[in-house]
Design a protein around this nucleic acid. Structure first.
Lengths: 209, 209
DNA sequence: CTTACACTGTGAACAGTGTTCACAATTCAA
DNA sequence: TTGAATTGTGAACACTGTTCACAGTGTAAG
């Protein structure tokens, strides 16, 4: 599989575009999102601030691209969970992977959580219901796992509460725990790994009857 | 009960301090948090920008105060849930009230959720375990309700997963759902009220065995 | 090879931001 | 009435995102 860009010009373009994004990501990781400025990005990659506008329409566009990249990385760290696990275990480990990412990259997680929930852009019911063929997408992973749980009889569909609703609730739980724990609540002395696991297990259990 | 401030001077001080905060809250509600600027606040209350520094050390201090005020309001809309309800129903309604606030005041909720999770500042285990006497605090409401559920036998304590952990998980679920639904996910056509209720019920159910 | 032309990068400028500070005006107590 | 403390201000500073005319470069056509 080759890159779609042909000419040297386009390759150079694509490269500095990536440089801009990587610099932005570094700044966020090192100094926090509020320190992200066009001038700092430009300084790091030896350009003038104005030059960035040859690659992005605005700072917001850069922020958006960074969000997408960070979301992609979060998605990657979810795909490492072996999909061969039994449904319940798989769901629990998905949630734990989500929390691990938030814990390992707090700045990035805070960043994307501030601007948007790290989820695929447009979720419609039809789109989701045919998502079994989209293996890479992180929300699809969750959706399919829920569906599997239903098929096996571990989860029970209720009125107005089917696969999509369960998947969203599960995502909400993971996201909420991640937000809570990447903020000042890390101070409370408790065994987070165990507690988190228990919370996921309980929730799944509760969806089963 | 009289105000603690005595002299006319102190009363005037307190009043313009409130004016500043109210202006800030209005701006956030009307134009969004990113439009909040000291100059706009000053314009609205007929002061120069520099004058604000007689009442607050920095913009961050104003933001902090606004956060506290918004958190207080969120807490108020949780206290309307009658504490006489049976434990499970009470917990569900508490969560629904949280979501209702987020839905009714999306800008304010987004604002506090961006800067901090809307929770009391310092939560320690000891502090929580003697919180039965702090009726007003919203997290204490949740904590006590969980405790009641345990006492009645509806919730089961597990290793490393007692009252505090359950309360935090429940808060995380509500917060996560609120964040998800105040973002672009409101587009998905589904019966949110029913789905949310079901999610809370399932979660509580799952903590019961 | 030379002539066009599109592309790339820049410095300077603009309007906006949070913040500071010397200074004037006011309020208040002695 | 005097004196000090409080209150408010305009001007300035350093920063931000953004625009734009301009110079230099790369590329493709004649």
């Amino acid at each position: 599989m080759k890159t779609a860009t042909r000419t040297p010009r386009e390759r150079r373009q694509e490269r500095t575009r990536q440089d801009i994004l990587l610099a932005a990501i570094d700044i966020i990781a090192e100094e926090g999102a509020e320190q992200l400025s066009l001038r700092e990005i430009a300084r790091r990659i030896d350009y003038s601030p104005a030059a960035l506008y040859r690659h992005f329409d605005s700072k917001e566009a850069i922020v958006d691209a960074v969000c997408n990249e960070a979301t992609r990385r979060l998605g990657d760290s979810l795909t490492v969970v072996p999909e061969t696990l039994p449904p319940v275990e798989y769901l629990v480990e998905l949630g734990m992977a989500y929390l691990r990412f938030a814990n390992d990259h707090p700045q990035h997680f805070r960043f994307i959580a501030t601007w948007r929930v790290p989820m695929p852009e447009d979720i419609t019911r039809e789109q989701m219901e045919q998502a079994a063929d989209n293996p890479a997408d992180p929300f699809s992973l969750l959706y399919r796992a829920i569906q599997r749980g239903i098929d096996v009889g571990l989860l029970r569909v209720k009125p107005n509460y089917a696969t999509l609703e369960m998947a969203l609730s599960m995502w909400a739980l993971a996201h909420g725990m991640a937000v809570l724990q990447t903020q000042r609540l890390g101070k409370i002395p408790m065994d987070y790994a165990r507690a988190n696991r228990q919370a996921f297990q309980d929730f799944i259990k509760g969806m089963g009857d």
